Computed example of a mutant assay.
Amino acid sequence: MSHTAHIRSHRKPRRSASTIAMRAGVAGGVLSTLAVAGASGSANAAEPVTQTLELPTLTADLAAQVAQSADVTQQAAASYELQAERDAAAAKAAKEAKADLAEAKKKAAEEKKQAAEAARKAAAERASRSAERATLSASADTGSSDSSGSSAGSSTSTSTATGSAAAVVAFVQSQVGDAYVSGGTGPNSWDCSGLVQAAFKSVGVDLPRVSQSQSTAGTQVGLSNLQPGDILYWGGAGSAYHVGVYVGDGMFVGAQNSSTGVVKASLDYDPPSGAVRVL
């Protein structure tokens, strides 16, 4: 034993240090245990809070997605409905346009028909007036003939046209002075067969369009036995290259050529090959 062991002041600090160390160790252990327990308790207590906070977040996201999907569906439905309305309106407009077009065509055809009828009546009236003037003139000049007439002209009939023949004569005489145009069918320009066809159409007689066919359209008659309204032709029957209308007194009217146009001339001016009688 140390020689100082009996001294209290030397032993008391050693005991105090051990006691303090032991107490510190115990306290540290207790504090560690408490810390671990506290940390564990904090961890265990925090876990439900974390789960409770996440659930509303997921639920809100899902609700937002559902709402967005509903908006898209509603917009699509509205778009389909708008397109359907547009398609229906377009179909209705097309149907109405088609009906309007059909009505317009029908109206145009009717107006054209009325115009043609009016033109025909006007031509018939004009022909009738011309025929009356021609009759009065022929009555005043009975027996007269062209001073340059040949045997063909002097041997033809000078009888005055009546009825439809008079209307045909009046029609062609009213066109004298009009222009000659190949293929012309009037009302102010003609070719030879177009003039003849129009003259007979004015009295309701349909003739073929070309001179070859018109030269065989009626009964063949001799040039010495002509009557007003007979069709004259130049060339062979069935192969004629020119036609005109005999108007009496050795005269005819025809659309001759582009230089002379429609003229009234003596048979001696251009002797025909033959004639046919339609009326």
Rank of each mutant, 00 (worst) to 15 (best):
residue 130 S to P: 00
residue 126 R to Y: 02
residue 119 A to Q: 11
residue 153 G to D: 14
residue 153 G to Q: 03
residue 115 A to E: 11
residue 127 A to F: 00
residue 114 Q to I: 12
residue 168 V to Y: 03
residue 108 A to Y: 09
residue 162 T to D: 07
residue 111 E to F: 05
residue 181 V to I: 13
residue 116 A to H: 09
residue 130 S to F: 05
residue 161 A to D: 09
residue 140 A to R: 05
residue 156 T to N: 10
residue 180 Y to S: 10
residue 129 R to N: 08
residue 112 K to L: 12
residue 178 D to N: 14
residue 131 A to Y: 03
residue 199 A to W: 01
residue 161 A to M: 07
residue 168 V to I: 11
residue 149 G to E: 07
residue 117 E to Q: 11
residue 197 Q to Y: 02
residue 131 A to P: 00
residue 118 A to E: 14
residue 193 S to L: 11
residue 159 S to A: 15
residue 154 S to Y: 07
residue 123 A to W: 00
residue 174 S to K: 01
residue 137 S to P: 04
residue 146 D to P: 03
residue 194 G to M: 04
residue 193 S to H: 10
residue 111 E to D: 15
residue 157 S to C: 12
residue 163 G to R: 06
residue 173 Q to S: 14
residue 184 G to P: 01
residue 189 S to A: 15
residue 160 T to P: 02
residue 155 S to A: 15
residue 139 S to M: 10
residue 170 A to C: 10
residue 172 V to Y: 00
residue 186 G to I: 08
residue 165 A to V: 02
residue 154 S to K: 11
residue 160 T to F: 01
residue 175 Q to L: 03
residue 131 A to W: 01
residue 145 S to L: 12
residue 113 K to E: 14
residue 153 G to P: 05
residue 122 A to Y: 04
residue 182 S to E: 14
residue 111 E to A: 11
residue 172 V to S: 06
residue 119 A to D: 15
residue 198 A to R: 02
residue 112 K to I: 08
residue 129 R to W: 06
residue 199 A to C: 11
residue 189 S to M: 04
residue 165 A to Q: 12
residue 174 S to R: 00
residue 192 C to A: 15
residue 137 S to T: 05
residue 109 A to I: 04
residue 148 S to G: 13
residue 138 A to T: 00
residue 111 E to Q: 13
residue 167 A to Q: 06
residue 166 A to W: 02
residue 186 G to C: 06
residue 142 T to Y: 05
residue 150 S to D: 15
residue 184 G to R: 00
residue 159 S to C: 10
residue 145 S to Q: 09
residue 182 S to P: 07
residue 142 T to F: 06
residue 150 S to V: 03
residue 198 A to C: 13
residue 151 S to R: 07
residue 184 G to S: 08
residue 121 K to D: 13
residue 161 A to W: 04
residue 202 S to W: 01
residue 184 G to I: 03
residue 159 S to D: 13
residue 198 A to Y: 03
residue 168 V to A: 02
residue 165 A to R: 10
residue 159 S to P: 00
residue 186 G to R: 03
residue 172 V to I: 08
residue 168 V to Q: 07
residue 144 S to E: 14
residue 160 T to Q: 12
residue 167 A to E: 00
residue 183 G to H: 09
residue 132 E to L: 05
residue 160 T to I: 13
residue 125 E to Y: 02
residue 160 T to L: 10
residue 166 A to L: 05
residue 136 L to F: 00
residue 156 T to F: 04
residue 186 G to W: 01
residue 135 T to S: 02
residue 139 S to Q: 09
residue 177 G to N: 13
residue 108 A to C: 01
residue 133 R to M: 07
residue 144 S to M: 14
residue 128 S to L: 02
residue 163 G to W: 08
residue 121 K to N: 08
residue 154 S to H: 14
residue 171 F to T: 12
residue 200 F to V: 04
residue 143 G to K: 09
residue 109 A to M: 03
residue 151 S to L: 13
residue 153 G to A: 15
residue 187 P to K: 09
residue 190 W to E: 07
residue 183 G to A: 09
residue 199 A to T: 05
residue 147 S to F: 07
residue 119 A to H: 13
residue 119 A to N: 15
residue 161 A to R: 05
residue 145 S to H: 10
residue 191 D to C: 04
residue 126 R to S: 07
residue 147 S to R: 11
residue 167 A to V: 06
residue 193 S to C: 09
residue 116 A to Q: 14
residue 122 A to I: 06
residue 158 T to G: 12
